[in-house]
Design a protein around this nucleic acid. Structure first.
Lengths: 341, 341
DNA sequence: TTTCTCAATGTTACCGGTAACATCAGCGAG
DNA sequence: CTCGCTGATGTTACCGGTAACATTGAGAAA
């Protein structure tokens, strides 16, 4: 009932200290390094904490120690079928160690990404996580100057300075070709997604082109004009199959397109894989529920989140159990052969 | 090269102030209320900010003003098919107004939820968002004492003190019955999910039971023992259809179960809806891609996020454009009639 | 007994902003 | 010409913790 400034009205370390008859720093130590506080004081403090319903103010703590327990992540989207697993596992692993997740989405826009990074840096997060290796110049400058660990996920390009946790999209493209080629298919087309900005998908296309060429086969890339993945898939199937020399197999840039294509084809009386083999990417939740179930490549979404969190915790000195080399940063995709190819 | 405490090594308001030849509070005002700073000083400050690459430290600002620009949200899960849209739209709307989202998942565990709430309160978020009306006692106590706005989502029970933004699960159950009853089905079964903890799903079941009873029909609830939704669906279909008096229609607690059931049935040669009508809940991404496409109810996931954000912004005085009553807090679900029922 | 060591605890100042109040210049009214 | 008011800017202290250094006391070593 007096202080000029109001505060939040909550109990502070000082209140706890007074009640427990110790100094405030001891209360602070009770939380950060309980082992250096004597049992007697620990008990008294615990009692006071409970009596006052004390909750530490992390903003104050972070300010004083210049190392908050927040980790910031920018991801293209939350609601898409791809990244949610990464966010989930990343968040869980962090929470387990007492860190909190600050999240924003970029929608594959490097400008939005930069805005988010700028806003996040204001919170001095303990670490910063981005998606892919492609950023704006501004972002590059910010992360170059950043003092906290920076991790790039969903891509693996070890030459870059930030730590990478991901996989090679180019190899995914090659792997898809390899699988279909091994099954005897020759006229293998690739359907790109029309989503502007997802640069990594273009890497997969490049891998496809490279491997096709190595096999002496002619690459055949179709770029849908429809934005809706469903419609785009239909468009691709119509264009690639209703012709004299139809495609024998189609690699879609993602499972959404593949499903759209298959569904359009099925409703038009086509049969897969008899009329054409279908190959996707992403292993979305529905992929195994389709008829025929979709052959695809599962990106290590969950693993990326886990390993990224692990690397960050290590960098922050929370090393914990796991041996430092239990995981490598280059993760494997899993080819899931189902009915469609 | 001197100060006892190191700081983050970044430029501060004081640095900017010195360079611009003003006092630090003026720099602070430049950011919070530019209109009360003279044009001359604004220019000088802007220059200094750019020269030093100054980024405001939000932790310090939040501490001093006791109102940070962080909003905390606890949600059952991120990677499931349901909540991602809510998170996405919520986060987008907040970002648009300069707020950041702090996120944690509870996995339908009220204890985990309480842990998250406790951790979040330490950041003195500007607002707190929870899912559903069911919490632990500890959580109830915490939010009762909380000074910031608290919003509960995905449920609408206006009697409660926290603001609600959601829909009535009981009505969803009734609505499902109504639709099938209107199509002439009598032996309508309900397949509950076995996911322990999702209390709202039980409300849907109760709505089903109530409406069935009102129609003079006998409720018929099947509880799968399998945890995997796919397997659970199969189990339900086998149990409900391979009998003398098979079910004519089945309402599944969610689309995952429905899809699992339909797929199991299809592979066993059953035809839907000829042999049995199938009705889901959730309108998951795959639901329109199934063969037959799934009749279901779309919860207003995206709208919940938007309205929750709007309510919070209003409570924080960021009123902004939207008239206060443009949205109500009780949102509508959309029944999507497709092929399966 | 004296000195030294080390573990337990306290004192002080500071992290980077901003609320509250003070000051000051310019200007119209009396 | 002085007074009072208003808008622009500055001073001071404080938000709630914790780093760095100081102090204390008990037991070990001399």
């Amino acid at each position: 009932m007096s202080g000029k400034r109001k505060g939040l009205g909550r109990a502070t370390v000082h209140d706890v200290a007074k009640l427990a008859g110790v100094s405030s720093i001891t209360v602070s130590r009770y939380f950060k390094q309980p082992e250096i506080v004597s049992q007697a004081l620990r008990d008294r403090i615990a009692e006071a904490v409970k009596a006052l319903d004390y909750l530490p103010n992390h903003a104050a703590g972070g300010l004083a120690s210049t190392r908050g327990r927040i980790v910031a992540m920018v991801i293209p989207n939350i609601s898409g079928p791809i990244f949610a697993n990464t966010i989930q596992s990343f968040s869980d692993e962090l929470n387990r160690h007492g860190y909190q997740l600050l999240l924003a989405s970029s929608y594959f826009s490097v400008e939005k990404e930069e805005d988010a990074v700028r806003a996040f840096l204001g919170w001095s997060p303990a670490a910063l996580v981005l998606t892919s290796q492609y950023h704006s110049e501004g972002t590059e400058r910010l992360i170059a100057k950043a003092t906290m660990p920076v991790v790039e996920t969903w891509d693996y390009v070890p030459e870059r300075k930030p730590v990478q946790v991901g996989f090679s999209h180019i190899d995914v493209g090659r792997q898809s070709v390899e699988y279909l080629h091994g099954k005897g298919y020759k006229r293998i087309a690739f359907v790109q997604n029309s989503l502007i900005g997802d640069l990594s998908a273009l890497d997969r296309r490049d891998g496809y082109i490279a491997r096709m060429t190595e096999h002496g086969l002619e690459p055949w890339v179709f770029v849908p004009t429809q934005a809706d993945p469903f419609e785009a898939g239909r468009q691709a199937v119509n264009s690639l199959l209703l012709r004299k020399q139809p495609a024998e197999a189609i690699i879609f840039a993602n499972d959404n397109l593949a499903a759209g294509g298959m569904l359009a084809g099925a409703r038009a009386g086509m049969r897969f894989p008899e009329d054409c083999a279908i190959f996707g990417f992403g292993n979305y939740a529905f992929s195994e529920m389709l008829l025929p179930s979709l052959t695809t490549i599962r990106p290590p979404a969950r693993e990326i989140g886990e390993v990224a969190a692990l690397r960050i915790l290590q960098a922050l000195g929370e090393a914990a159990a796991e041996g430092p080399l239990k995981h490598l940063n280059l993760l494997d995709c899993e080819l899931i052969a189902r009915e469609s190819a």
